[in-house]
């Protein structure tokens, strides 16, 4: 409980807090707009002409683009796993609680979905419904649902046979009440920790899509898109790609470190039961 968390927990947490605050306050910070072009200072190094982190090959302020890009990464990185968690939890708990035919169908659907080429799903989804932040979030959320469903099902099966569930059944509680009051609170703890690991994955996936030019539509900056844009002039001005790469790495690393530490604690608590 009162276990020491150490620098490997607090430093990542500080970084994430910093990124979140930056993303929220991006509009009020004294930086140029992310698509404002400074013709006199194309691809300048950090610190030149009032550009804290320099400009990209089109003369746009990198710091500003990072701030606004952080919004995309964080919104997708947080909301998509939430969608996946809700969908996955629903399917997984039903499969694990009722077993039988429902479980067979849901497990079959999960297996099919996992074998489905992810990129085809994302591309077709975005083609049909249009490229926007919300569609991107929903598509990535649906993609993460099967793995959440697996975790939910495994944990539901583990708890469904426990004495407190049997006790609830014995006093005549309905299925819905049992699921909501007995199963869900227990299943949710490991799922929330797992969500942190999925967040890292989603931020990377969004970056990959941005890199291919398939994330949010053009004027809105995204970290993956920034890395891809700098690739053209990697030899002369490496900072255009390297700065967003470093920011993305630190963010994903932080999320993973926090998730890893919390998972250790949840596992530790389970083993004490």
């Amino acid at each position: 409980m009162g276990r020491k968390r150490g620098a490997a927990f607090w430093l990542p947490l500080a970084w994430i807090t910093f990124v979140v605050l930056c993303a929220i306050s991006a509009s009020w910070l004294p930086v140029p707009s992310p698509d404002q072009i400074d013709w006199d200072n194309l691809a300048v190094k950090p610190g030149v002409a009032g550009h804290l982190l320099g400009t990209d090959t089109l003369g746009r302020d990198i710091a500003s683009r990072l701030l606004f890009g952080a919004r995309v990464s964080l919104i997708v990185g947080f909301l998509a796993p939430c969608i996946g968690l809700v969908l996955g939890c629903f399917a997984g708990v039903i499969a694990g609680f009722y077993r039988g035919l429902a479980e067979k169908l849901i497990v079959g659907a999960i297996d099919t979905f996992l074998a489905f080429p992810r990129l085809v799903f994302l591309l077709v989804f975005i083609f049909v419904l249009g490229a926007s932040l919300s569609n991107l979030t929903i598509a990535l959320g649906i993609l993460t649902a099967p793995s959440f469903a697996r975790v939910a099902r495994a944990n539901t099966i583990r708890f469904a046979g426990r004495e407190f569930v049997l006790a609830a059944k014995a006093i005549g509680a309905g299925d819905v009440a049992i699921i909501l009051r007995e199963i869900l609170p227990n299943v949710l703890a490991p799922m929330l920790v797992y969500m942190l690991l999925v967040m890292g994955f989603v931020i990377v996936a969004e970056g990959g899509l941005g890199f291919l030019g398939l994330s949010v539509p053009s004027p809105t900056p995204s970290w993956g898109g920034m890395i891809a844009e700098g690739r053209e002039a990697l030899d002369e001005t490496p900072h255009v790609s390297m700065i967003p790469t470093a920011v993305m790495f630190l963010t994903v690393l932080s999320v993973n470190l926090i998730g890893d530490r919390l998972r250790g604690q949840v596992d530790g608590r389970e083993s004490q039961l």
Binding site: G207, F211, I227, S241, T245, F249, V252
Partner: peptide
């Protein structure tokens, strides 16, 4: 594990 492979490729 925290580096996207495309970022690693750029580096």
């Amino acid at each position: 594990i925290s580096v996207p492979s495309f970022a690693l490729a750029i580096v």
